[in-house]
Design a protein around this nucleic acid. Structure first.
Length: 214
DNA sequence: GCGACAG
DNA sequence: ATCTTGTCGC
Protein backbone atom coordinates (compact mmCIF):
# COMPACT_ATOMS: atom_id res chain seq x y z
CA UNK A 1 0.00 0.00 0.00
CA UNK A 2 1.39 3.36 -1.01
CA UNK A 3 1.19 6.30 1.34
CA UNK A 4 -2.05 8.24 1.56
CA UNK A 5 -2.14 11.83 2.75
CA UNK A 6 -5.50 12.62 4.40
CA UNK A 7 -4.67 16.31 4.76
CA UNK A 8 -4.10 16.73 1.04
CA UNK A 9 -7.09 14.55 0.24
CA UNK A 10 -9.39 16.65 2.42
CA UNK A 11 -8.15 19.84 0.78
CA UNK A 12 -8.77 18.33 -2.65
CA UNK A 13 -12.31 17.32 -1.69
CA UNK A 14 -13.23 20.82 -0.53
CA UNK A 15 -11.92 22.30 -3.77
CA UNK A 16 -13.87 19.83 -5.90
CA UNK A 17 -16.99 20.22 -3.75
CA UNK A 18 -17.05 23.92 -4.52
CA UNK A 19 -17.04 23.15 -8.25
CA UNK A 20 -20.10 20.91 -8.11
CA UNK A 21 -23.06 22.20 -10.11
CA UNK A 22 -26.23 21.36 -8.18
CA UNK A 23 -28.73 22.08 -10.92
CA UNK A 24 -29.65 20.31 -14.15
CA UNK A 25 -26.98 21.05 -16.70
CA UNK A 26 -27.45 18.47 -19.43
CA UNK A 27 -29.89 17.48 -22.20
CA UNK A 28 -32.79 15.97 -20.30
CA UNK A 29 -33.81 13.25 -20.81
CA UNK A 30 -30.40 11.75 -21.64
CA UNK A 31 -30.03 9.42 -24.67
CA UNK A 32 -27.87 7.04 -22.71
CA UNK A 33 -26.65 6.44 -19.18
CA UNK A 34 -23.60 4.59 -17.89
CA UNK A 35 -23.20 2.58 -14.69
CA UNK A 36 -19.79 2.02 -13.06
CA UNK A 37 -18.49 -0.25 -10.32
CA UNK A 38 -15.28 -1.84 -9.04
CA UNK A 39 -14.45 -5.42 -8.05
CA UNK A 40 -11.15 -6.61 -6.59
CA UNK A 41 -8.74 -9.31 -7.67
CA UNK A 42 -5.76 -9.49 -5.37
CA UNK A 43 -3.82 -6.23 -5.66
CA UNK A 44 -5.84 -5.16 -8.68
CA UNK A 45 -9.00 -3.10 -8.96
CA UNK A 46 -11.27 -4.11 -11.82
CA UNK A 47 -13.18 -1.12 -13.10
CA UNK A 48 -16.37 -1.82 -15.03
CA UNK A 49 -18.40 0.58 -17.17
CA UNK A 50 -21.66 -0.37 -18.84
CA UNK A 51 -23.57 1.92 -21.20
CA UNK A 52 -27.32 1.57 -21.68
CA UNK A 53 -29.80 3.46 -23.79
CA UNK A 54 -32.03 5.49 -21.51
CA UNK A 55 -35.11 4.57 -23.54
CA UNK A 56 -35.22 0.81 -23.25
CA UNK A 57 -32.34 0.27 -20.83
CA UNK A 58 -30.63 -2.08 -23.24
CA UNK A 59 -26.89 -2.62 -22.85
CA UNK A 60 -25.09 -0.73 -25.63
CA UNK A 61 -21.52 -1.28 -24.56
CA UNK A 62 -19.51 -2.66 -21.66
CA UNK A 63 -15.82 -2.31 -20.91
CA UNK A 64 -13.45 -3.35 -18.12
CA UNK A 65 -9.99 -2.23 -17.03
CA UNK A 66 -7.47 -3.39 -14.45
CA UNK A 67 -5.12 -1.24 -12.46
CA UNK A 68 -3.12 -1.84 -9.30
CA UNK A 69 -4.77 -0.37 -6.22
CA UNK A 70 -2.41 0.85 -3.53
CA UNK A 71 -4.78 2.97 -1.51
CA UNK A 72 -6.76 1.28 1.32
CA UNK A 73 -10.45 1.71 1.82
CA UNK A 74 -11.02 4.56 4.25
CA UNK A 75 -14.57 5.88 4.81
CA UNK A 76 -15.05 9.31 3.13
CA UNK A 77 -12.01 8.71 0.89
CA UNK A 78 -13.42 6.01 -1.36
CA UNK A 79 -12.89 8.07 -4.52
CA UNK A 80 -9.12 7.95 -4.24
CA UNK A 81 -9.25 4.15 -4.29
CA UNK A 82 -11.97 3.45 -6.84
CA UNK A 83 -11.88 6.27 -9.36
CA UNK A 84 -8.66 5.24 -11.16
CA UNK A 85 -10.03 1.86 -12.35
CA UNK A 86 -13.44 3.41 -13.08
CA UNK A 87 -12.00 6.19 -15.23
CA UNK A 88 -9.79 3.73 -17.07
CA UNK A 89 -12.83 1.61 -17.94
CA UNK A 90 -14.94 4.63 -18.93
CA UNK A 91 -12.30 5.76 -21.41
CA UNK A 92 -12.68 2.42 -23.20
CA UNK A 93 -16.37 2.91 -23.96
CA UNK A 94 -17.01 3.62 -27.65
CA UNK A 95 -19.46 6.37 -26.73
CA UNK A 96 -19.11 9.10 -24.14
CA UNK A 97 -21.95 8.80 -21.57
CA UNK A 98 -24.53 11.58 -21.27
CA UNK A 99 -24.67 10.82 -17.56
CA UNK A 100 -23.03 8.34 -15.18
CA UNK A 101 -24.53 6.53 -12.21
CA UNK A 102 -21.92 5.66 -9.59
CA UNK A 103 -22.12 2.93 -6.98
CA UNK A 104 -21.30 5.38 -4.16
CA UNK A 105 -22.46 8.60 -2.52
CA UNK A 106 -22.16 12.01 -4.13
CA UNK A 107 -23.15 15.11 -2.17
CA UNK A 108 -24.14 12.90 0.74
CA UNK A 109 -20.64 13.19 2.13
CA UNK A 110 -19.15 15.10 5.09
CA UNK A 111 -17.33 17.46 2.72
CA UNK A 112 -19.99 17.20 -0.01
CA UNK A 113 -17.55 15.37 -2.24
CA UNK A 114 -18.35 11.65 -2.38
CA UNK A 115 -16.91 9.56 -5.22
CA UNK A 116 -19.88 10.34 -7.51
CA UNK A 117 -19.30 14.09 -7.24
CA UNK A 118 -15.57 13.67 -7.41
CA UNK A 119 -15.84 11.74 -10.68
CA UNK A 120 -18.33 14.18 -12.18
CA UNK A 121 -16.18 17.24 -11.55
CA UNK A 122 -12.97 15.58 -12.74
CA UNK A 123 -14.54 14.39 -16.00
CA UNK A 124 -17.00 17.28 -16.28
CA UNK A 125 -19.84 14.82 -16.87
CA UNK A 126 -23.22 14.72 -15.08
CA UNK A 127 -23.24 12.06 -12.33
CA UNK A 128 -25.61 10.53 -9.78
CA UNK A 129 -24.63 8.70 -6.61
CA UNK A 130 -26.47 5.54 -5.56
CA UNK A 131 -25.38 3.75 -2.37
CA UNK A 132 -26.71 0.80 -0.46
CA UNK A 133 -26.01 2.15 3.01
CA UNK A 134 -25.71 5.46 4.83
CA UNK A 135 -22.46 7.31 5.36
CA UNK A 136 -23.69 10.45 7.10
CA UNK A 137 -26.82 12.43 7.87
CA UNK A 138 -30.08 11.74 9.64
CA UNK A 139 -33.24 10.54 7.98
CA UNK A 140 -36.58 12.28 8.41
CA UNK A 141 -39.81 10.31 8.40
CA UNK A 142 -40.29 11.06 4.68
CA UNK A 143 -36.94 9.66 3.51
CA UNK A 144 -35.12 12.97 3.28
CA UNK A 145 -31.50 12.82 4.45
CA UNK A 146 -30.28 15.91 6.23
CA UNK A 147 -26.86 16.95 7.53
CA UNK A 148 -26.14 20.24 9.24
CA UNK A 149 -29.53 21.58 8.22
CA UNK A 150 -28.94 20.77 4.59
CA UNK A 151 -30.80 18.28 2.40
CA UNK A 152 -28.05 16.06 1.04
CA UNK A 153 -29.99 13.16 -0.40
CA UNK A 154 -33.02 10.90 -0.48
CA UNK A 155 -33.58 7.37 0.77
CA UNK A 156 -35.68 5.21 -1.53
CA UNK A 157 -37.19 1.88 -0.54
CA UNK A 158 -35.14 0.09 2.09
CA UNK A 159 -31.45 0.99 1.82
CA UNK A 160 -31.15 2.75 -1.51
CA UNK A 161 -29.63 6.20 -1.02
CA UNK A 162 -29.63 8.75 -3.81
CA UNK A 163 -27.63 11.97 -3.95
CA UNK A 164 -26.46 14.19 -6.75
CA UNK A 165 -23.02 13.80 -8.18
CA UNK A 166 -22.56 16.76 -10.51
CA UNK A 167 -24.51 18.89 -12.99
CA UNK A 168 -27.92 17.63 -11.86
CA UNK A 169 -30.59 18.51 -9.30
CA UNK A 170 -31.60 16.09 -6.55
CA UNK A 171 -35.14 16.02 -7.94
CA UNK A 172 -33.98 14.97 -11.40
CA UNK A 173 -31.50 12.49 -9.93
CA UNK A 174 -34.30 10.77 -8.04
CA UNK A 175 -36.48 10.68 -11.17
CA UNK A 176 -33.71 9.07 -13.23
CA UNK A 177 -32.93 6.53 -10.53
CA UNK A 178 -36.61 5.65 -10.23
CA UNK A 179 -37.00 5.29 -13.98
CA UNK A 180 -34.05 2.93 -14.27
CA UNK A 181 -35.05 0.90 -11.24
CA UNK A 182 -36.41 -2.55 -12.15
CA UNK A 183 -35.02 -4.36 -9.13
CA UNK A 184 -33.80 -2.88 -5.87
CA UNK A 185 -30.57 -1.64 -7.43
CA UNK A 186 -31.05 0.62 -10.48
CA UNK A 187 -30.02 -1.00 -13.77
CA UNK A 188 -26.90 1.03 -14.64
CA UNK A 189 -25.05 0.16 -11.44
CA UNK A 190 -26.56 -3.30 -11.21
CA UNK A 191 -25.29 -4.21 -14.67
CA UNK A 192 -21.87 -2.70 -14.00
CA UNK A 193 -21.65 -4.82 -10.87
CA UNK A 194 -22.73 -8.00 -12.65
CA UNK A 195 -20.36 -7.31 -15.52
CA UNK A 196 -17.45 -6.83 -13.12
CA UNK A 197 -18.24 -10.13 -11.42
CA UNK A 198 -18.50 -11.86 -14.79
CA UNK A 199 -15.09 -10.57 -15.94
CA UNK A 200 -13.58 -11.39 -12.58
CA UNK A 201 -14.72 -14.99 -12.95
CA UNK A 202 -13.26 -15.23 -16.46
CA UNK A 203 -9.94 -14.03 -15.10
CA UNK A 204 -9.95 -16.58 -12.27
CA UNK A 205 -10.76 -19.32 -14.79
CA UNK A 206 -7.94 -18.18 -17.02
CA UNK A 207 -10.23 -17.35 -19.94
CA UNK A 208 -8.97 -13.78 -19.80
CA UNK A 209 -5.40 -12.76 -18.97
CA UNK A 210 -4.72 -9.88 -16.61
CA UNK A 211 -2.32 -8.30 -19.11
CA UNK A 212 -5.17 -7.99 -21.61
CA UNK A 213 -7.04 -5.62 -19.31
CA UNK A 214 -4.15 -3.47 -18.15
C1' DG B 1 -12.54 10.81 24.25
C1' DC B 2 -16.39 7.76 22.02
C1' DG B 3 -19.04 6.02 18.31
C1' DA B 4 -19.93 5.91 13.14
C1' DC B 5 -18.04 4.74 9.03
C1' DA B 6 -19.93 4.48 0.89
C1' DG B 7 -17.01 0.04 -1.28
C1' DA C 1 -15.27 -5.08 -1.16
C1' DT C 2 -13.88 -10.28 -0.12
C1' DC C 3 -13.90 -15.33 1.85
C1' DT C 4 -18.12 -19.08 -0.13
C1' DT C 5 -22.83 -23.89 -1.75
C1' DG C 6 -26.71 -24.97 -1.46
C1' DT C 7 -31.21 -23.99 -0.68
C1' DC C 8 -36.02 -22.09 0.09
C1' DG C 9 -39.49 -19.46 -2.36
C1' DC C 10 -42.00 -16.49 -5.77
Amino acid sequence: MGVFNPTVAIRTQWILANKVILKDNFHNPPRNIAGVDVAYIGEYGLGAAVLLDYEGLHTIDEKAALIKVDIPYIPTFLAFRELPPIIKALKRLRTKPDIIMVDAHGRMHPRRCGAASHLGVVLNIPTIGVAKSRLIGKETNNGVIIDKGEVIGIKLDRNVYVSIGHRISLETAVKIVSKTKIYKIPEPVRRAHNYAERVKKLIREGTIKIEDLL
